[in-house]
Amino acid sequence: MKRNSGKSDRLTRHEREGLQFISLWITGFIILRLFPAVFSFIFSFSDYSLFGGISEWGMMNYEKIAGDITIITSLFTTLEYSLITVPLRLLTAFGVALLLNRNIKGMAFFRTVFYIPSVLGSSVAVAILWTALFRNDGTANALLSSLGLPEVNWLSEKGSAMFVISLLRIWQFGSSMVVFLTALRSVPRDLYESAEIDGAGKVRRFTSITLPFISPAIFFNIITQIGLAMQEFNAPFVITKGGPRGSTTLISLLIYNSAFQMRDLGLSCALTWVFFIILSVLIAVIFSTQKHWVFYADETEEL
Protein backbone atom coordinates (compact mmCIF):
# COMPACT_ATOMS: atom_id res chain seq x y z
CA MET A 1 0.00 0.00 0.00
CA LYS A 2 2.78 2.31 1.00
CA ARG A 3 4.86 1.42 -2.10
CA ASN A 4 1.90 1.95 -4.40
CA SER A 5 1.22 5.35 -2.91
CA GLY A 6 4.87 6.39 -3.35
CA LYS A 7 4.84 5.26 -6.99
CA SER A 8 1.68 7.25 -7.59
CA ASP A 9 3.26 10.35 -5.98
CA ARG A 10 6.39 10.04 -8.13
CA LEU A 11 4.28 9.67 -11.26
CA THR A 12 2.33 12.79 -10.36
CA ARG A 13 5.54 14.69 -9.81
CA HIS A 14 6.82 13.55 -13.19
CA GLU A 15 3.62 14.68 -14.77
CA ARG A 16 3.91 17.99 -13.01
CA GLU A 17 7.48 18.42 -14.18
CA GLY A 18 6.45 17.51 -17.69
CA LEU A 19 3.73 20.11 -17.56
CA GLN A 20 6.21 22.67 -16.24
CA PHE A 21 8.51 21.91 -19.14
CA ILE A 22 5.81 22.46 -21.72
CA SER A 23 4.06 25.25 -19.84
CA LEU A 24 5.98 27.89 -21.78
CA TRP A 25 4.98 26.31 -25.05
CA ILE A 26 1.35 25.98 -23.90
CA THR A 27 1.32 29.65 -22.88
CA GLY A 28 2.78 30.65 -26.25
CA PHE A 29 0.31 28.40 -28.06
CA ILE A 30 -2.67 29.89 -26.24
CA ILE A 31 -1.57 33.52 -26.65
CA LEU A 32 -0.05 33.39 -30.11
CA ARG A 33 -2.10 30.67 -31.83
CA LEU A 34 -5.32 29.72 -30.10
CA PHE A 35 -6.44 33.19 -29.08
CA PRO A 36 -5.84 34.80 -32.51
CA ALA A 37 -7.57 31.85 -34.18
CA VAL A 38 -10.67 32.10 -32.00
CA PHE A 39 -10.57 35.91 -32.25
CA SER A 40 -10.35 35.86 -36.04
CA PHE A 41 -13.11 33.25 -36.34
CA ILE A 42 -15.53 35.29 -34.24
CA PHE A 43 -14.73 38.60 -35.92
CA SER A 44 -14.92 37.08 -39.40
CA PHE A 45 -18.70 37.35 -38.88
CA SER A 46 -18.55 41.09 -38.28
CA ASP A 47 -17.80 44.31 -40.15
CA TYR A 48 -14.97 44.99 -37.68
CA SER A 49 -13.06 48.06 -38.83
CA LEU A 50 -9.65 48.61 -37.25
CA PHE A 51 -10.68 52.01 -35.86
CA GLY A 52 -14.41 52.10 -36.42
CA GLY A 53 -15.33 49.09 -34.28
CA ILE A 54 -18.22 46.77 -35.09
CA SER A 55 -21.62 47.94 -36.28
CA GLU A 56 -22.99 44.74 -37.76
CA TRP A 57 -22.72 40.96 -37.37
CA GLY A 58 -23.48 38.42 -40.09
CA MET A 59 -22.18 36.55 -43.11
CA MET A 60 -21.38 39.72 -45.08
CA ASN A 61 -17.65 38.99 -45.37
CA TYR A 62 -18.16 35.45 -46.62
CA GLU A 63 -20.74 36.71 -49.10
CA LYS A 64 -18.26 39.31 -50.30
CA ILE A 65 -15.54 36.68 -50.70
CA ALA A 66 -17.88 34.52 -52.80
CA GLY A 67 -18.83 37.40 -55.07
CA ASP A 68 -15.74 39.62 -55.25
CA ILE A 69 -13.78 39.03 -58.41
CA THR A 70 -10.59 40.51 -56.89
CA ILE A 71 -10.65 38.00 -54.04
CA ILE A 72 -11.47 35.02 -56.25
CA THR A 73 -8.71 36.08 -58.65
CA SER A 74 -6.30 36.30 -55.72
CA LEU A 75 -7.20 32.76 -54.59
CA PHE A 76 -6.57 31.44 -58.11
CA THR A 77 -3.35 33.47 -58.37
CA THR A 78 -2.13 31.83 -55.15
CA LEU A 79 -2.98 28.39 -56.52
CA GLU A 80 -1.25 29.25 -59.80
CA TYR A 81 1.84 30.43 -57.91
CA SER A 82 1.93 27.20 -55.90
CA LEU A 83 1.40 25.03 -58.99
CA ILE A 84 4.29 26.79 -60.74
CA THR A 85 6.77 26.99 -57.89
CA VAL A 86 6.30 23.70 -56.01
CA PRO A 87 6.93 21.27 -58.91
CA LEU A 88 9.73 23.38 -60.39
CA ARG A 89 11.41 23.90 -57.03
CA LEU A 90 11.21 20.19 -56.21
CA LEU A 91 12.44 19.13 -59.65
CA THR A 92 15.37 21.56 -59.38
CA ALA A 93 16.14 20.41 -55.85
CA PHE A 94 15.95 16.76 -56.85
CA GLY A 95 18.07 17.26 -59.96
CA VAL A 96 20.78 19.07 -58.03
CA ALA A 97 20.61 16.50 -55.21
CA LEU A 98 21.19 13.71 -57.77
CA LEU A 99 24.24 15.59 -59.07
CA LEU A 100 25.58 16.19 -55.58
CA ASN A 101 25.02 12.59 -54.49
CA ARG A 102 28.40 11.54 -55.78
CA ASN A 103 31.64 10.97 -54.01
CA ILE A 104 33.79 13.44 -55.85
CA LYS A 105 36.52 15.55 -54.28
CA GLY A 106 35.30 18.98 -53.18
CA MET A 107 31.61 17.99 -53.27
CA ALA A 108 31.03 19.48 -49.80
CA PHE A 109 31.91 22.88 -51.26
CA PHE A 110 29.29 22.59 -54.01
CA ARG A 111 26.67 21.38 -51.53
CA THR A 112 27.30 24.51 -49.49
CA VAL A 113 27.15 26.76 -52.53
CA PHE A 114 23.79 25.36 -53.62
CA TYR A 115 22.42 25.78 -50.11
CA ILE A 116 23.42 29.44 -49.79
CA PRO A 117 20.22 30.89 -51.38
CA SER A 118 18.19 29.06 -48.72
CA VAL A 119 20.34 30.46 -45.94
CA LEU A 120 19.51 33.92 -47.26
CA GLY A 121 15.88 32.86 -46.98
CA SER A 122 12.96 34.79 -48.42
CA SER A 123 14.29 37.90 -46.72
CA VAL A 124 13.33 41.43 -47.64
CA ALA A 125 16.93 42.20 -48.60
CA VAL A 126 16.97 39.41 -51.20
CA ALA A 127 13.60 40.59 -52.54
CA ILE A 128 15.02 44.11 -52.96
CA LEU A 129 18.01 42.65 -54.78
CA TRP A 130 15.59 40.73 -57.00
CA THR A 131 13.82 44.01 -57.87
CA ALA A 132 17.15 45.53 -58.87
CA LEU A 133 17.92 42.53 -61.09
CA PHE A 134 14.61 42.61 -62.92
CA ARG A 135 13.73 46.29 -63.23
CA ASN A 136 13.73 47.74 -66.75
CA ASP A 137 17.37 48.81 -66.60
CA GLY A 138 18.43 45.86 -64.44
CA THR A 139 20.90 43.05 -64.94
CA ALA A 140 18.40 40.64 -66.54
CA ASN A 141 17.66 43.05 -69.39
CA ALA A 142 21.34 43.93 -69.75
CA LEU A 143 22.03 40.22 -70.22
CA LEU A 144 19.26 39.87 -72.80
CA SER A 145 20.57 42.92 -74.69
CA SER A 146 24.11 41.56 -74.75
CA LEU A 147 22.76 38.37 -76.31
CA GLY A 148 20.91 40.41 -78.93
CA LEU A 149 17.51 39.49 -77.49
CA PRO A 150 14.65 41.95 -76.91
CA GLU A 151 14.25 43.39 -73.42
CA VAL A 152 11.34 42.31 -71.22
CA ASN A 153 9.22 44.45 -68.88
CA TRP A 154 9.71 41.99 -66.05
CA LEU A 155 7.90 43.85 -63.29
CA SER A 156 5.15 45.54 -65.26
CA GLU A 157 3.66 42.76 -67.38
CA LYS A 158 1.35 40.27 -65.75
CA GLY A 159 3.00 37.03 -66.88
CA SER A 160 6.56 38.18 -66.39
CA ALA A 161 5.90 39.60 -62.90
CA MET A 162 4.57 36.20 -61.81
CA PHE A 163 7.67 34.64 -63.36
CA VAL A 164 9.96 36.97 -61.37
CA ILE A 165 8.45 36.18 -57.97
CA SER A 166 8.22 32.47 -58.83
CA LEU A 167 11.85 32.35 -59.86
CA LEU A 168 12.88 33.71 -56.45
CA ARG A 169 11.09 30.84 -54.72
CA ILE A 170 12.50 28.24 -57.11
CA TRP A 171 16.02 29.63 -56.69
CA GLN A 172 15.82 29.02 -52.95
CA PHE A 173 15.59 25.25 -53.34
CA GLY A 174 18.35 24.42 -50.81
CA SER A 175 16.22 23.06 -47.96
CA SER A 176 14.32 20.66 -50.25
CA MET A 177 17.63 19.63 -51.80
CA VAL A 178 19.10 18.72 -48.41
CA VAL A 179 16.08 16.51 -47.66
CA PHE A 180 16.45 14.78 -51.05
CA LEU A 181 20.19 14.41 -50.60
CA THR A 182 19.78 12.78 -47.18
CA ALA A 183 17.16 10.42 -48.59
CA LEU A 184 19.31 9.54 -51.58
CA ARG A 185 22.29 8.75 -49.37
CA SER A 186 20.17 6.46 -47.19
CA VAL A 187 19.27 4.13 -50.08
CA PRO A 188 21.19 0.85 -49.40
CA ARG A 189 24.07 0.45 -51.89
CA ASP A 190 23.75 -3.34 -51.92
CA LEU A 191 20.30 -3.06 -53.50
CA TYR A 192 21.81 -1.28 -56.49
CA GLU A 193 24.56 -3.91 -56.72
CA SER A 194 22.04 -6.77 -56.58
CA ALA A 195 19.87 -5.09 -59.19
CA GLU A 196 22.89 -4.52 -61.43
CA ILE A 197 23.84 -8.22 -61.15
CA ASP A 198 20.25 -9.08 -62.07
CA GLY A 199 20.69 -6.98 -65.22
CA ALA A 200 18.64 -3.92 -64.26
CA GLY A 201 19.53 -0.80 -66.28
CA LYS A 202 19.97 2.71 -64.88
CA VAL A 203 16.36 3.69 -65.51
CA ARG A 204 15.02 0.50 -63.92
CA ARG A 205 17.25 0.97 -60.88
CA PHE A 206 16.04 4.55 -60.55
CA THR A 207 12.33 3.72 -60.83
CA SER A 208 12.38 0.50 -58.81
CA ILE A 209 14.89 1.35 -56.08
CA THR A 210 15.65 5.06 -55.84
CA LEU A 211 12.14 6.46 -56.26
CA PRO A 212 10.39 4.09 -53.80
CA PHE A 213 13.11 4.63 -51.20
CA ILE A 214 12.99 8.39 -51.39
CA SER A 215 9.19 8.63 -51.76
CA PRO A 216 8.74 9.65 -48.07
CA ALA A 217 11.15 12.54 -48.71
CA ILE A 218 9.22 13.53 -51.85
CA PHE A 219 5.98 13.41 -49.86
CA PHE A 220 7.46 15.49 -47.05
CA ASN A 221 8.79 18.08 -49.50
CA ILE A 222 5.49 18.35 -51.38
CA ILE A 223 3.49 18.91 -48.19
CA THR A 224 5.86 21.47 -46.67
CA GLN A 225 6.49 23.31 -49.93
CA ILE A 226 2.79 23.63 -50.78
CA GLY A 227 2.15 25.01 -47.31
CA LEU A 228 4.97 27.52 -47.64
CA ALA A 229 4.19 28.55 -51.22
CA MET A 230 0.53 29.16 -50.44
CA GLN A 231 1.57 31.45 -47.57
CA GLU A 232 4.21 33.41 -49.51
CA PHE A 233 4.17 37.11 -48.61
CA ASN A 234 7.59 38.76 -48.87
CA ALA A 235 8.19 38.46 -52.60
CA PRO A 236 4.94 40.02 -53.86
CA PHE A 237 4.96 42.57 -50.99
CA VAL A 238 8.45 43.87 -51.70
CA ILE A 239 8.98 43.20 -55.41
CA THR A 240 5.64 43.80 -57.12
CA LYS A 241 3.31 45.15 -54.39
CA GLY A 242 0.82 42.64 -55.79
CA GLY A 243 0.87 44.24 -59.25
CA PRO A 244 0.68 44.73 -62.09
CA ARG A 245 -3.10 44.98 -61.87
CA GLY A 246 -3.30 42.49 -59.01
CA SER A 247 -1.65 39.71 -61.02
CA THR A 248 0.71 38.81 -58.16
CA THR A 249 -1.59 39.61 -55.25
CA LEU A 250 -1.30 36.34 -53.38
CA ILE A 251 -3.88 35.69 -50.70
CA SER A 252 -1.55 36.47 -47.77
CA LEU A 253 -0.85 39.91 -49.27
CA LEU A 254 -4.58 40.47 -49.77
CA ILE A 255 -5.20 39.55 -46.12
CA TYR A 256 -2.52 42.05 -45.04
CA ASN A 257 -3.87 44.81 -47.30
CA SER A 258 -7.45 44.24 -46.13
CA ALA A 259 -6.47 44.49 -42.48
CA PHE A 260 -3.76 47.15 -42.36
CA GLN A 261 -4.39 49.31 -45.43
CA MET A 262 -8.15 49.13 -45.87
CA ARG A 263 -8.62 48.66 -42.07
CA ASP A 264 -11.26 45.99 -42.79
CA LEU A 265 -10.37 43.52 -40.05
CA GLY A 266 -13.60 41.53 -40.42
CA LEU A 267 -12.97 40.77 -44.08
CA SER A 268 -9.34 40.01 -43.36
CA CYS A 269 -10.34 37.45 -40.68
CA ALA A 270 -12.88 35.82 -43.02
CA LEU A 271 -10.27 35.62 -45.79
CA THR A 272 -7.88 33.93 -43.37
CA TRP A 273 -10.45 31.26 -42.53
CA VAL A 274 -11.43 30.61 -46.13
CA PHE A 275 -7.76 30.30 -46.98
CA PHE A 276 -7.16 27.99 -44.00
CA ILE A 277 -9.98 25.68 -45.12
CA ILE A 278 -8.74 25.58 -48.73
CA LEU A 279 -5.20 24.81 -47.60
CA SER A 280 -6.39 22.13 -45.15
CA VAL A 281 -8.47 20.41 -47.85
CA LEU A 282 -5.54 20.52 -50.23
CA ILE A 283 -3.16 19.03 -47.68
CA ALA A 284 -5.76 16.39 -46.69
CA VAL A 285 -6.17 15.35 -50.34
CA ILE A 286 -2.42 14.97 -50.74
CA PHE A 287 -2.23 12.98 -47.50
CA SER A 288 -4.99 10.65 -48.71
CA THR A 289 -2.94 9.77 -51.79
CA GLN A 290 0.17 8.77 -49.88
CA LYS A 291 -0.83 5.14 -49.36
CA HIS A 292 -0.75 4.69 -53.14
CA TRP A 293 2.73 5.95 -53.78
CA VAL A 294 4.71 6.55 -50.59
CA PHE A 295 6.84 3.58 -49.55
CA TYR A 296 7.95 3.28 -45.94
CA ALA A 297 10.80 0.81 -45.35
CA ASP A 298 9.45 -0.37 -41.99
CA GLU A 299 6.16 -1.36 -43.62
CA THR A 300 7.94 -4.00 -45.78
CA GLU A 301 9.65 -5.41 -42.76
CA GLU A 302 6.26 -5.93 -41.15
CA LEU A 303 4.98 -7.54 -44.33
Binding site: N136, N153, L155, E157, I239, P244
Partner: peptide
Amino acid sequence: SIAEISGDGSITFDRSP
Protein backbone atom coordinates in the same frame (compact mmCIF):
# COMPACT_ATOMS: atom_id res chain seq x y z
CA SER B 1 2.58 54.64 -68.76
CA ILE B 2 2.00 53.03 -65.37
CA ALA B 3 3.62 49.85 -66.76
CA GLU B 4 6.75 51.81 -67.56
CA ILE B 5 6.83 53.36 -64.08
CA SER B 6 6.26 49.97 -62.39
CA GLY B 7 9.07 48.52 -64.47
CA ASP B 8 11.47 51.03 -62.90
CA GLY B 9 11.10 49.11 -59.63
CA SER B 10 11.08 52.27 -57.47
CA ILE B 11 8.44 53.15 -54.90
CA THR B 12 8.70 56.91 -55.41
CA PHE B 13 10.27 59.10 -58.10
CA ASP B 14 12.94 60.49 -55.80
CA ARG B 15 14.35 56.94 -55.70
CA SER B 16 13.90 56.33 -59.39
CA PRO B 17 17.08 56.23 -61.49
